[in-house]
Amino acid sequence: MKKSSIVLDGIFKNNSTFIMLLGLCPVLATTSGISSAIGMGLAMLAVIIVSNVSISLIRKIIPNEIRIPVMIVIIATIVTVVEMVMKAYLPDLAANLGTYLSIIVVNCVIFARAESFALKNSVLDSLLDAIGTGLGFLLSVFVLALFREVLGTGAVDFKNFVNGETLFKFRIFPQEYAISIFVENPGAFLMLGLLVALITFLIPTFTNLKQKRAKQEAQKSLQANLVKEAK
């Protein structure tokens, strides 16, 4: 498997949120604004990279019978460390993410990558897989939060992770036209459903288009060969 496709698969083809629909609890809860979504995405990226690399490093010595508890201990340690560092240096972000930061411990995306990839592959491949999956998660929460915040408030408001002050605010349309349900809890389900439906519709369309083009090119080259042979 090509190194680049390991990363790209995690971002697009096997995107944990929009394609595999895994670990949706923090996705739904932390995407009411882009600041908390980016924070959650970065925390997840850090945890998945360290967990995949450490599990891959010791994969040959982990006894198969206790691989699950060992993985839980490793992932819980990484999440606790990330949480402590965030509380110390990014207090506002840590306060915004609240419990959802702690429950990364039981996020099935991290477990899935550890169990199905890091335990069976080299450290470099596991690192690339973690980068791909983490970036895929970051991209999905960012897209979801962007749509929710823009439709729900009419603006994009990016806050400082340290003190919660607004770094930049960009108004797209007046507040009175905003559909506030999108920044509320039901809006998370609605928007996720809409985006999943859109992506599910677009994937076969693009695949068919690609296949059609490949078919047309094959026919063209066949015709060109036939013409050549006839001459």
Binding site: I62, I66, V70, V73, A76, V81, M84, V85, Y89
Partner: peptide, 20 residues
């Protein structure tokens, strides 16, 4: 093995906690 893993984890958490 599980005990050693827990000990290493506890040490790491204690180390990070000492500066955060």
């Amino acid at each position: 093995f599980l005990g050693v893993t827990c000990l290493i984890s506890a040490g790491l958490i204690a180390g990070v906690n000492s500066f955060t």
